[in-house]
């Protein structure tokens, strides 16, 4: 079922100008990250909110590139560092099949800014985390918020790159947020 959702997600996300890559192993994940960073000419990469078990694969993929570990920076310094990055690697708690979206839950705005500021955002998402549609995802989001014992997270749904049609209804990408969003679907995590 999960991969059916992931496939549906991939079709819709791609139709919204998002890029979808699948990785079935740690090695494939590192390789996809490395290739993406090279293709985009990224010389600095902001990494934020990546769960423990996936960090190794991310670190390996970005070897040789300047990595900004957002979680280790304090206050405005974090914001400025993220703004300097060419690419970011972030984590999505869920994928949403029908609408082709990623759902991010962040407890720190520096993590949220990591998926907002750089020109390219690579969002890692577990293949097992996909939900059928936006309504189900909102229910899940509501539950995360209601059940978070401490500070409440911010939930962001991201359905492709930042876009506008404000000039003669022409579709343009990257007006404020990323020009390109890559969903890297992990079959192993």
């Amino acid at each position: 079922m999960a991969s059916q959702y992931a496939d549906a997600f991939a079709r819709v996300f791609a139709s919204r100008n998002g890029v979808v890559l699948f990785a079935q192993s740690k090695g494939a994940t590192s390789e996809a990250l490395r290739r993406t960073a090279v293709e985009r000419g990224a010389s600095s990469v902001a990494v934020a909110g990546i769960p423990e078990g996936v960090r190794g694969a991310v670190a390996e993929g970005l070897e040789g590139i300047e990595v900004i570990d957002v979680g280790s920076l304090r206050g405005a310094e974090a914001k400025e560092a993220v703004a300097r990055a060419d690419l970011s690697v972030t984590w999505a708690a869920h994928g949403v099949a029908k609408e082709g979206a990623l759902m991010e839950a962040t407890w720190d705005d520096a993590t949220k800014l990591a998926s907002c500021l750089p020109m390219t955002n690579v969002a890692l998402v577990s293949e097992g985390s996909f939900l059928p549609d936006f309504h189900a995802a909102m229910r899940a989001a509501g539950k995360i918020v209601a059940e978070s014992p401490g500070p409440k997270p911010t939930i962001s749904f991201i359905a492709g790159p930042s876009r506008t049609a404000d000039i003669e209804s022409r579709l343009l990408y990257g007006v404020h947020g990323p020009h390109s969003v890559v969903a890297l679907v992990l079959g192993w995590a």
Partner: peptide, 20 residues
């Protein structure tokens, strides 16, 4: 005519920035 807008954000509390 979009199934959803590109971004939907939901804020419940003010998050810290860089831990502050």
């Amino acid at each position: 005519g979009q199934p959803m807008t590109v971004y939907v954000s939901a804020f419940t509390a003010r998050s810290p920035l860089g831990g502050e």
